[in-house]
């Protein structure tokens, strides 16, 4: 009986608009976003036997899409020799935003999001837009929850500075 196939597809379909919203915010480009969603759907259908009944399908679909996105970012980054680890990306974005804010203030949300390192952008969007719990976001991104929280802190703070046109990085530490 092919009930599982149908129920997988039926259930997966309801998340397409959410995948699309996330992809659009993530890539900053409508057609790149739909490419990404389409790739993710095709991959999800091919790999649907890997999804376990009773587990969170939304998280699974986001994970599938995230992995595709990361591969794209990494291969693009390799071509452009852009550093991709957290710390290096932070330094890169800092240098970048300082220069940018000298010329003009980035007030546009889309532009500000794109100025975030990818690791921070994903967390800010999964939590802030998709309203995932930290635990759900950690599972989607396949990183520890502590990493989610530190990326969220840095990402939101950077976004705040970008949107408010504040040039100086704000030190992030324990507030007393």
């Amino acid at each position: 009986m092919d009930q599982p196939v149908e129920s997988f597809a039926t259930r997966a379909m309801q998340y397409i608009p959410r995948l699309r919203r996330y992809a659009r915010a993530l890539t900053g480009d409508a057609s790149a976003a739909d490419d990404l969603v389409q790739d993710a759907l095709e991959r999800a259908l091919l790999k649907q036997s890997l999804w376990r009944e009773g587990t969170d399908l939304r998280a699974w679909l986001f994970t599938v899409m995230h992995n595709i996105f990361i591969n794209q970012v990494r291969s693009a980054a390799a071509n452009r020799l852009v550093p991709i680890d957290d710390v290096a990306a932070d330094a890169f974005a800092d240098a970048h935003s300082l220069q940018a804010s000298d010329r003009l203030e980035i007030r546009d949300l889309d532009a500000a999001l794109q100025a975030l390192p990818e690791e921070q952008r994903t967390v800010v969007l999964l939590v802030g837009l998709e309203q995932m719990t930290y635990d759900e976001a950690a599972r989607v991104l396949e990183v520890p929850i502590g990493t989610v929280m530190s990326r969220l802190s840095r990402g939101r703070e950077r976004l705040r500075r970008l949107l408010q046109g504040m040039p100086e990085p704000h030190p992030l530490k324990v507030v007393k």
Binding site: A9, T10, M13, Q14, L41, E42, Q48
Partner: peptide, 16 residues
């Protein structure tokens, strides 16, 4: 997106 698989008959469901 998915001609390979039959998600078609259930297009009527919910969101799409």
């Amino acid at each position: 997106a998915a001609r390979r698989r039959a998600w078609y008959p259930y297009a009527a469901a919910a969101l799409l």
